[in-house]
Design a protein around this nucleic acid. Sequence first.
DNA 1: ATGACTGCAAACGATTTGCAGAATC
DNA 2: GATTCTGCAAATCGTTTGCAGTCAT
Lengths: 146, 146
Amino acid sequence: MDHQDARELRSRGMAATGRRLLVLRFLRLQREPRSAAEIHACLRSHGDHIGLTTVYRTLAILVRADLVHAFKRNGETAYRICNRGRHCHLVCRGCGAVTEIVASGLEPASTAGFRIEEIYGTCSACLESEPPVRPGTGPGPGSSAG
Amino acid sequence: MDHQDARELRSRGMAATGRRLLVLRFLRLQREPRSAAEIHACLRSHGDHIGLTTVYRTLAILVRADLVHAFKRNGETAYRICNRGRHCHLVCRGCGAVTEIVASGLEPASTAGFRIEEIYGTCSACLESEPPVRPGTGPGPGSSAG
DNA sequence: ATGACTGCAAACGATTTGCAGAATC
DNA sequence: GATTCTGCAAATCGTTTGCAGTCAT
């Protein structure tokens, strides 16, 4: 509901303008992170007039307010609504899917003292559709490794 | 030793040119990742003539050959010599330090099926020098969370 | 009515590409 | 000697900034 978002924004000292509610509402509908360009294009194609600059500025504000989290995806930044509280993100480089997980279960001895914030890798679904790199084929060990 | 690097490059189908050995040798001396601009500047200030374009092209080749790994650092890409074999990287957003760790110890139930490649966060040293965010001060839980 | 928000166009930094000359194999 | 590599300058991509007009409070 807009009033909810508006209150959320207001409580954080920022004006609840139409464009901001637009971006916030759009992000609430997305399961995966979206880039500024994507958000901009989607909103425009939906008939909403908003500038790319405003999208960037709004996202920066939402990130600072901890309402949205930013992920690096290839050469660009993608944004997603984010729950508050101590958690970290599992980000798949293949499909871009993001899963929030509890960090406490991920800190064995090898990472002692290191606060995990994001984990990048490949999810099970994308692992299956990976190029066939079976041992014995391609540039594997045994060919010319030193 | 140069001959070693040269052989390494040759065995991967790429010419062992002076510039490539230059970049490779430089990276071997670095403990932390370095950006293309940093590599370029350091080599030049050392008296070696090399173009920024060549640095980028060489790095791309070394990454494809699995000799070097690329890390996203703020708005740029940083590169570091990388051991082959199954391992993942622990990258500190504060100081940029990278540690290679064995991934097998990092896959509890919550990440089942997910292949971890990189972990971003904050190392213990940087955690201590963080801004004083004590509970009760600032935008902590209990203020207006919904 | 004031001050913050918005949009356009230009600026910006990192990276890539086109093409002529120089190196390697 | 053919092919690949190299460097410069220009182009590209994502993002930020300057400034005048618009909106929310």
